[in-house]
Amino acid sequence: MEKSLLNLLREGGWILYVRHGEATVGEDQPYIHFQNCYTQRNLSELGRRQAIYYGDMIRYLRIPIRLPIQASPFCRTIETAQLAFGCVPVQIHPFWFEVYQLDKNSLRKEQTFNTLRSILEMKPPKGTNQVIIAHGFPDNIGLGQISNMGTVIVRPLGIGKGYEVLKKLSLEDLAALVSSP
């Protein structure tokens, strides 16, 4: 199964929804200023190493990535994208802040899920995979909880046709693809 998963990823057409690397302990301040990283949790040293390792594995596995990488406006997601993929364009997508707020703001859940569905329905160009670096979801909501640098592999079915979750991989699961024969 794992070998066929790798072949599918190499063919492209998938969305790789990735949770950022491990962040520092604490909480984001109530009035986050996205251009001021001191108002939010940031990557820990382990989180930085996780992001670099993730990018190294994607390159080693020869998984084609569509540019720009999409990221939430938080410093930790932008830094994850930069560490994982180097000097490539990163498109900041403010919608991913809505995902971050899902467990705090139940009034916007339906609208958030409608937008999420429309984003995950969009097929990337043939031969590439779209990477989105954002946040985990509350348990049993959306794509569910995601470990640090975990990846949800999503198959977009086209606008208005929905999407399917193929597999959820932890960072260790991705590493196992590297070491499999």
Rank of each mutant, 00 (worst) to 15 (best):
W96T: 09
W96A: 06
F97W: 08
F97S: 11
E98S: 13
V99R: 11
L102Y: 09
D103Y: 08
K104Q: 15
K104G: 05
N105R: 12
N105V: 09
N105E: 11
S106E: 12
S106Q: 15
L107R: 14
R108Q: 15
E110S: 15
E110G: 13
Q111Y: 00
F113C: 03
F113V: 12
N114E: 12
N114P: 01
N114Q: 14
T115D: 08
T115E: 11
L116D: 02
L116K: 07
L116Q: 09
R117Q: 15
I119T: 07
I119Q: 12
I119W: 04
L120V: 02
L120T: 00
M122G: 02
M122Y: 00
P125G: 01
K126S: 15
K126P: 14
T128F: 14
T128K: 13
N129V: 00
N129F: 01
N129D: 06
Q130I: 00
V131D: 12
V131W: 10
V131F: 06
V131H: 07
I132H: 07
I133R: 15
A134N: 09
A134I: 04
H135G: 10
F137T: 05
F137K: 12
P138N: 12
N140C: 08
I141P: 11
I141K: 14
I141A: 15
G142S: 11
G142C: 04
L143Q: 02
G144H: 10
G144E: 13
Q145K: 14
I146G: 08
I146D: 12
S147P: 10
S147R: 15
N148H: 14
N148T: 14
M149Y: 14
M149D: 13
G150R: 10
G150Y: 03
T151I: 07
T151P: 07
T151K: 08
V152N: 11
V152H: 11
V154L: 08
V154C: 07
R155H: 08
